[in-house]
């Protein structure tokens, strides 16, 4: 899986904001805000990445147990699937 083209992540004053640009801005009218771990997952998904690979990267980056990491990733994936920006 991978984030669809046409979205840019920008950090402004400690806030992570995803902005639709180009063609994507015609279909997606909102703005997504992420926390720092959400931004990490977003960046990881800019390239094709499986759930297992995502989990591995997440555990390398954050000092948390596997169970919590799985829940966080699931929550994140569901959210971005809801707004249809995952390929």
């Amino acid at each position: 899986m991978k984030i669809k083209a046409g979205f840019m992540l920008r950090e402004v004053a400690g806030n992570y904001v995803v902005v639709p640009v180009g063609e994507a801005s015609k279909e997606f009218k909102g703005i997504i805000t992420l926390n720092s771990s959400g931004a990490f997952l977003w960046k990881s998904l800019l390239e094709e990445c499986s759930i297992e690979e995502l989990l591995e990267k997440f555990l390398d980056e954050y000092d948390i147990d596997e169970e919590t990491a799985k829940k966080d990733i699931e929550l994140f994936i569901n959210k971005i699937k809801e707004v249809n920006i995952l390929e």
Binding site: M8, V17, I31
Partner: peptide, 14 residues
């Protein structure tokens, strides 16, 4: 203002 700044930054880069 945060949203505006993010949109301006992304669009300017494009």
């Amino acid at each position: 203002d945060v949203y505006r700044a993010a949109i301006f930054a992304a669009e300017s880069e494009l």
